[in-house]
């Protein structure tokens, strides 16, 4: 399980990383935290000629809070994001999801951007990006562009990143509503494993406890994590009665295309999707109401 041979370049700046990517294109891979890339190299499932290490580029490691958006540099370590109390206050779903990401040793090294680019359909951070409709800034030598999460995730382990592009920043929308709650949960065989199914939700309520904004999504049950903005819209203006909640969750589950493996059948995954979606929506709603 030794990696195949490759050449290594440590990029000192974003420009240098982009320059190297433009030179090597398809034969290069970006190395950030390496927590997914290195095992795939060990299994010899990937054989890039070059690894371009962006993990030492300081300008890719930051958390910047603005009124309506929290910006994180792509190479910010997961543990840094998890421990940032101010960020957790603005985008609570991130911290809630990170508690399910691997183990401490993984989060100490793994980066926010690395998990998104890896685009595992069961992974937690891509799901959060989908639910919150995060925007992803990517850079090539020719310049930057910004993608929505929906456009970014194109399939299992695949994204809209071009071979010469590098993810540089993730913009997490901050909801303006005073009474906002969120919840994240998942079912896995063991603690810390990739989810069989994961679900997250964020809900805001008015002073009367009526939902004024809702978002939720499910991971692990389709080729990409899926958010359900239209179904969430049905919850707005309601007080989350059980029948409606169940119906919304069931419709979400019905819209998924789960796969099967030794741990979970498609039917079980679909079932879990409905159960977990109901739970996170209810929990987010309850938290939001309590925050009034």
């Amino acid at each position: 399980m030794k990696s195949p041979a490759f050449e290594y370049a440590r990029a000192a700046s974003i420009d240098e990383a982009c320059e190297l990517l433009s030179q090597h294109g398809d034969s290069a891979k970006v190395l950030a935290g390496g927590q997914s890339l290195v095992p795939m190299m060990a299994f010899r499932l990937l054989r890039p000629h070059w690894l371009i290490d962006i993990s030492e580029i300081a300008p890719l490691q930051y958390i910047a809070l603005e009124t309506d958006v929290a910006r994180t540099g792509a190479c910010t370590r997961q543990c840094t994001v998890q421990c940032d109390a101010t960020l957790a206050a603005q985008v609570p779903l991130l911290r809630q999801a990170l508690a399910f990401v691997g183990h401490a040793q993984i989060r100490n090294r793994g980066t926010i951007g690395g998990s998104l680019v890896q685009a595992d359909p069961s992974a937690e951070l891509p799901l959060v990006a989908q639910i919150l409709q995060a925007r992803l800034v990517v850079r090539a030598k020719s310049g930057p562009r910004t993608l929505t999460a929906e456009d970014f995730f194109t399939g299992p382990m695949t994204t809209a990143l071009a071979p010469d592009e590098c993810l540089t920043e993730i913009q997490w929308p901050v909801w303006p509503d005073r009474s906002t709650g969120s919840a994240f949960t998942e079912v896995s065989r063991r603690h810390g494993d990739f989810a069989m199914v994961a679900a997250g939700a964020q809900v805001a309520v008015d002073a009367a406890g009526q939902c004024i904004r809702a978002a939720f999504g499910v991971g692990g049950a389709a080729p990409t994590p899926v958010a359900f903005p239209d179904l969430a819209q049905r919850l707005v203006g309601t007080s989350f009665n059980q029948a409606l909640l169940r119906d919304v969750a069931q419709q979400a589950a019905a819209a998924l295309e789960p796969g099967a493996d030794t741990h979970a059948s498609a039917a079980y995954r679909r079932h879990l999707a409905a159960v977990l979606a109901t739970r996170v929506l209810q929990s987010a709603y309850d938290t939001a109401r309590a925050a009034r």
Partner: peptide, 27 residues
């Protein structure tokens, strides 16, 4: 948790620690 599973082609499908599930201190 633990099982060496095989598919119809006779291939071991739990040949890594991601699929062969050794319980941790949390289990």
């Amino acid at each position: 948790y633990e099982q060496f599973t095989y598919d119809d082609n006779g291939q071991l499908t739990s040949g890594t620690f991601m699929d062969y599930l050794i319980p941790s201190a949390r289990e």
